[in-house]
Design a protein around this nucleic acid. Structure first.
Ligand code: NAD
Ligand code: NAD
Lengths: 256, 256
DNA sequence: AGGCGCTTGTGAAGACGTGCACAAATCGCG
DNA sequence: CGCGATTTGTGCACGTCTTCACAAGCGCCT
């Protein structure tokens, strides 16, 4: 976690973009806004209201406005937001003006799918290199890229100026791979292996774990089943009627 | 969300689970604790302290204790938690005592990888059916399962009592597939397509979007680069030491 | 039995995130 | 030129989550 908040320079008369220092929750939503905006642009929309964009992104419109207000005032009251301008601004804030090079380590079952995914390219990234430790896989060509041995990582990382590393190896190898990535200067890692990675301060790790997602769904499934099964709670008072239609739970949005 | 648990009956002679109604943030972490606990059990540990488990799960120990306290008091002061007992409790709360059936729709690039993934089975789930709309793929056998046409979903869903649907189709087809899943009674969906799904109240959707993860990393990468470029802010400090060996295990955990 | 060290469980405080509600700003039109 | 319709940007209150700090409980050793 980044904790050191520089207290000084509040007004900050800086003329430059000035690093807005966005709330983390906002950062996590910006990509979704960006995707929705691209959809709108592709369908010919020139402007969009906060209400419209919020619906397209699946969030509350007040939240969307507050999020965007952190980037500056790029909307026009009474009109809405200019789609092209907003795309530009969000991409700028997310650092997508340069196409970042991604290295994928572990070209197995999952790695193959990722290597062949074109959603990377269309959203600001370039798979620059594939690595594996299995000699049987080295040399294989996927989508125009040759799989290299992981020992070549230092050389290739320098050549391609890798910005982000993706780990798709078994969990047992993930920490070692992470160490190797850090060693060659990678400071952002996306980890698909089901394990906790230990990295130096300053290195960011995000984790995607499919089984965890399913287990969270399982919890809610379990809870829903229990609720309809035995609606009587405690011993007295509040006799939540089992009608089944009186579901008070509002929007079902779970987690982030 | 309601939080008031029954005020009386502290000893709680109740033998039944009793629906703890956990905070969502806690639910999202329980699977990680569970995974860490299984690792501990496999390496012969019988008990573990909150500190130890917290480290293994990559969280703060106070947070872990508070999370576990929501399930009840399953620890022993001065000793720690019984690993086997805690596994049992967490699995019970998450509804993993029954092996839930999962249907995977869209057996393309990504779908193939998911269908062949054994991490499902070992963590409480069973891939019960594969579906695709492409006649060319229907009939193909993957990992012992035959790909069926998506039109067979109603029949198969009933036969296998599908609990969770996984969508791995292109975004353009995702909403239609979601509708079909809801239609046959599925109330939990894991969506890999980069789009917002609209579902009725009572249906839970979780989304995994690889490009979003990368873009969030990109933001932090961008910010880190800007900071080192112009460190004039405040007193600066933090001169990222290149040594590389001073790995403080302070995880950089971003977002959730 | 009693004391000591260790660990849990939790109250309290603060940080963070959310959503309402409304003033301010802008456009279009008569 | 002014007015009403529309939509942004934000102050404020509320709820959720995190973290600290410590009393209470437990086992072990003397
Ligand atoms: N397949 C899926 O759908 C899926 C889903 C979620 C998570 N995961 C996780 O993703 C990871 C990969 O899964 P998979 O199914 O592709 O496994 P896999 O065994 O098919 O592929 C792993 C690949 O990593 C390579 N590898 C092993 N050690 C390495 C090292 N030190 N350096 C470089 N490469 C190395 C192996 O040679 C292999 O090619 C696993 O941790 C798995 O738990 C997979
Ligand atoms: N491949 C990846 O690594 C990756 C990563 C992240 C996200 N995604 C997303 O996952 C989804 C699938 O990606 P992919 O690379 O596997 O695509 P793909 O084109 O290889 O596979 C899509 C499959 O869905 C099937 N399909 C299409 N319409 C259908 C329908 N109505 N019902 C049932 N099946 C249908 C197609 O026949 C095809 O087999 C896409 O939305 C993609 O954006 C993929």
């Amino acid at each position: 976690m980044s904790q050191h908040r520089h207290p000084g320079a509040p007004g900050s008369a800086g003329a430059v973009p000035a690093l807005p220092d966005l709330p983390e929750a906002t950062v996590a939503r910006l990509p979704e806004y960006l995707r929705a905006l691209h959809n709108l642009a592709d369908t010919g929309h020139e402007t969009v209201s906060s209400e419209g964009l919020a619906t397209a992104a699946g969030v509350n419109s007040a939240k969307l406005r507050k999020d965007l207000s952190h980037l500056g005032s790029y909307g026009t009251r009474g009109v809405g937001y200019d789609v092209a301008l907003l795309i530009e601004q969000i991409e700028s804030v997310l650092g997508l003006t340069q196409r970042r090079a991604v290295a994928l380590v572990g070209v197995g079952n999952l790695g193959h799918a990722l290597a062949g995914y074109d959603g990377f390219a269309s959203r600001g990234f370039r798979i620059a290199a594939l690595f594996d430790a299995d000699p049987g896989r080295v040399g294989e060509e996927i989508n125009g890229l040759v799989v290299r041995h992981v020992d070549e990582l230092p050389r290739v990382a320098a050549e391609e100026s890798i910005a982000i590393g993706v780990i798709a190896t078994p969990a047992s190898a993930a920490q070692r791979v992470a160490d190797q990535l850090v060693e060659v200067g990678v400071t952002s890692i996306l980890n698909f292996a089901p394990c906790v990675l230990s990295v130096p301060e300053g290195v960011d790790v995000r984790k995607v774990d499919l089984a965890i997602e399913l287990q969270i769904l399982s919890f809610h499934e379990h809870r829903k089943a229990s609720l309809t099964a035995l609606p009587a709670t405690g011993g007295s008072a509040l006799t939540a009627l089992p009608g089944g239609l009186a579901a008070t739970d509002s929007q079902e949005a779970i987690g982030t």
